[in-house]
Nucleic acid binder design. Sequence first.
DNA 1: TTTGTCACG
DNA 2: ACGTACGTGACAAAC
Length: 880
Amino acid sequence: MREKIVLIDGHSILNRAYYGVNMGMTNFEGLHTNAVYGFLNILLKIIDEEQPQYMTVAFDVKAPTFRHEMYEAYKGTRKGMPEELHEQVPLTKDVLKAMGIQVAELPGYEADDILGTLSARCEKEGLDVVLVSGDRDMLQLASGRTKIRIPKTKGGTTAVEDYLEKDVKEKLGVTPSEFVDVKALMGDSSDNIPGVPGIGEKTAFALIQKYHSLEAVYADVDNVKPARAQKALAAGREMAELSQTLARIDRECPVEFSLEQARIGKLFTPEAYEIMKRLELRSLLKRFEAGCQTQNSVERAFLFLDDLEGAELAFEKAMGAERIGMQLVAENGELLGLSLAFGEEDIYFLEASDFLTGEYLAGKARQLCLRGRDTWMLDLKEALPYLGIEETEGVYDAGVAGYLLNPLKSAYVYDDLAREYLELTVPSRTDLLGKVSFQSALQDKKESCITCFCYSAYTAMASGEILLTKLRETGMEPLFRNIEMPLIYSLYHMEKEGIQVEKEALRVYGETLRVQIERLEIEIYELSGETFNINSPKQLGVILFEKLKLPYGKKTKTGYSTSADILEKLAPEQPLVAKILEYRQLTKLKSTYADGLAVYIGEDGRIHGKFNQTITATGRISSTEPNLQNIPVRMALGREIRKVFVPKEGCVFVDADYSQIELRILAHMSGDSRLIEAYHQAEDIHRMTASQVFHVPFDEVTPLQRGNAKAVNFGIVYGISAFGLSEGLSITRQEALDYIKQYFETYPGVKVFLDGLVDSGKEKGYVTTLFGRRRPVPELSSSNFMQRNFGERVAMNSPIQGTAADIMKIAMIGVDRRLRRENLRSRLILQIHDELLVEAAEDEAEQVKRILKEEMDGAAELSVPLEVDLNTGYSWFETK
DNA sequence: TTTGTCACG
DNA sequence: ACGTACGTGACAAAC
C-alpha cells in the first residue's frame, strides 16, 4: 500500500466554501465563519475518504509573481475578495496550525506553483498525490499517481469531480500537459492569460488534438485550416508563447517542504477544539470532542407512534411547548402521518392508521398551530390544505426564512438547513427514501421514514430561533414577518382557486395549429429538397448553412446558431427561412400551450398551477406546472390562446397592471430630481425620456426617438452595457455608448446610484432592495472579466427588479385580504410579476377595481406615483 | 442530464 | 482581448 499526501489549494477552496455556505454566519464576536466552516467540512470529508498520511495546504502570498514580471497586464488569480471572506483567511490558518496541518506559502509564487512543485516532489518520493482545488487549471498536473479533486457546490450539496490522467483525456480529449497548450491558444480570462486573438475554445482543442503541442502547431502553421485560424496563429505567435509560459504551472519552485512536517498527527487537538468553540462551529465541535465520531445524537430520540394513547400524550405535551417543529406527510390529498419535535428528547413520527386517522392528525396539527406559540414548518403552503388555518401569528416556514438569508440556493430542504444553521450533517430525503412515493416508503422502509420525517420536524424546530436571529441581524425580519409569511397564504389561495380553461376551445386551437404545421412541414421539405427534423437545431443548421450555404451569423458551442434573431436576418431573402420561423412559432404554441396546458386541466375545468416562493434570485415568485406567467401575448396568433382562459359563470376578469413600475422604482431609489420630475409630469415615460435626453419638445418626439429611449430605459434597468444596447437597437457600440452618455448627463443621479450599487455590492458581497431583501453577488469578486461584468449588471438590476417584486407582494397580500375581509366572492387568481388577475363576481367588479387600485397604488410610498392600469373582460384575451 | 430555443415580465 | 443585456419555465433533441 503506497502512502498518500493530500495537497489543498487553500484560497480556492475557501472561496468556494464562502459562496457555498450561508453567508450571514457569524459567531458572537461578529466574526464571519462560513468559509472556515465550509473549508473544514471539505477538508474533513477528503480526509475521511482518502485516509492520507500527509497533508499540506498552500496559500497565495500578496506579492508580484514571475507572471507579473513577464506580462504587465497579468493580474493573477488573487483579486479583491469581500472583506467578510478576507478576514477568514488568517482564521483558517489558525485552525490548520492547531490541527498540526502544514501550511505552505512562498512570496513570488502562486498556490498553483507550490502545489505543482509539491506534487512533483511527492510523486518522486513514491507517494500517491491527491490535489484538491476549485480551479480546473490544476488538471495539467493530473497523472497516473496524482488525482485532481474539484469540489462543486450545486445548490446546497457538494459533489467532488475526480480526475486522474486518463479522466482528463476522456473528458477533455487532451493529455494534462497538452491542456496547457490548449490554454495557451484559447487564453483564459479568469487567469488573464491572453491566448491567441481569434482562436476560441473549439479551434484550440481541435489543433492540440491534432498536433499534440503548441510547437508542433507552429511547425506546421502553413498547413493549418481553416485559413482564418492560420492567419490568427501567424499573427499571434508571440502571444501564444507568452501564454504558454503563463499558463504552465511551475513545478520547480524553491518552496521549503519536509514530508515529516506534512505528516498528519492528531487532528482533533485541544487547541483546535478551543478554536471551534470560539467560532461556534457546533457540529464540528462534536467531532473534535469525540475524536472521529460523527454519530448524531438527536437520532436516538426519534420515536415512532401509531397508538392513540401515545399520540394523545405527545400532542398534549406539545401543546405546552414554547416552540415546536412539524412536518406533515401527505400524498395525493391524503394525510399519511406527521412528525413533531419540541425538544432534543421529544421527536416523534406519528403514522396515520385505523386508530390514528388522517383527520385526527390534521385536527391536532391545526390545534398546535393555533396554540399561540411558535410553530416552525417546511413547505407550509403544501400543508395548508390539511391544517385549514388562515394567516396565523407564530406559524413560520423555515424554508422561506432560509430563502431570504440566501436566495441563490436551489432548494431549502431539511438536510441543507441542518447543515447550514445547525451545523449538523444528516441524511437527505433521497438518501433515506430514494425517489419512491411516501406510500410505498412507509410500507417498505419504516425506519428510514421515521428518520427522514423526524429530522425534518427537528430541523424546522431547532433552526427556527437561529433563522429568526439571522433575519433580525440582516434587517430582514420585517420582510419575513410582514411580507413573505403572509404571502404564503395568498399564494395558497391562488393555487387553490385556479383558473377556468375551456378545454374544447383549447383542443380546437391545437387542431388548427396541427393543420397549419403539417402544411408548413411539406413546404419546408420541398424547399430544402429533403426531409429532416425541423425541430433539431443540429439538423437544421446543416441544411441551412452547409447544404444551402446561407451565411451563418453566430455559432454556439455545439454548432451553428439557428435562433430567431439570426434567422430573421435571412428571412426576407429566403422563403424557406421564413417558413421555418413560422413553423417554430406554431410548434411552440402547440407543444407548450395547446397540448401542454391541456394536461393540467382538472376535473373542475380549472388549472391549478403552482406559485413558487423560493426560486428566484431577486425575490420574484415563479410559476410552474404549468407556467402561467408566460402565456403568449406579444404575437397576435399566440395571444389568441388567452381566449380559452375565462371567468366562471357570473364572473368577469378584472386585470390590473403596474405601469412601468421598474422605471419608477429607479427614479425613486436614485433620487434623481429630473427623473422624478419627469414621472410626475408624464404618463408616457419613454417619450418623456426621449424628450429630455435628445433635447426635443415632448410633442415633437419621433417614434424612432421614443423607441431608442425605450431601449435605453430597458438597458438601464438590466444593468446598462453598450454592447447590450447596441444589440437591442441594432446600432454600433459607439452609438450605444453615446446614448448612454447622454442619458447619464441628463440624469446624473441615476449614474451615481448605479455606480453606488456596484461599489457597495463589491464591498458587502450583496445588494439590497428598498425593503431590505438581499441578493448575494459572488460574481463581483470574480477575476473573470465576463463574470465580473455580469455581477455588475446583477448589482444594478436586482435592487430594482427585487423592489418591484416586494411591492407586488405587498399589493397581493392587501388585495387578497380585502377581498376576504369585505366578504366578497371575487378572488385573486394570477400574478404575472407586474400584473394581477382577479376573477370578480359581476356585481362586485366596481368594488374589486377600487380595491386593486388602492392596494396596488398604496403598496409603497415612492417619490413618484405608482400608476395602475385596469381592464375587464370575459376572457384573459379581452383584458388588454 | 444538458443544450438550444422561445414564451413571458 | 474577452463576449453579454435582467429574471424565469417548458419542450424537443442530443448526449
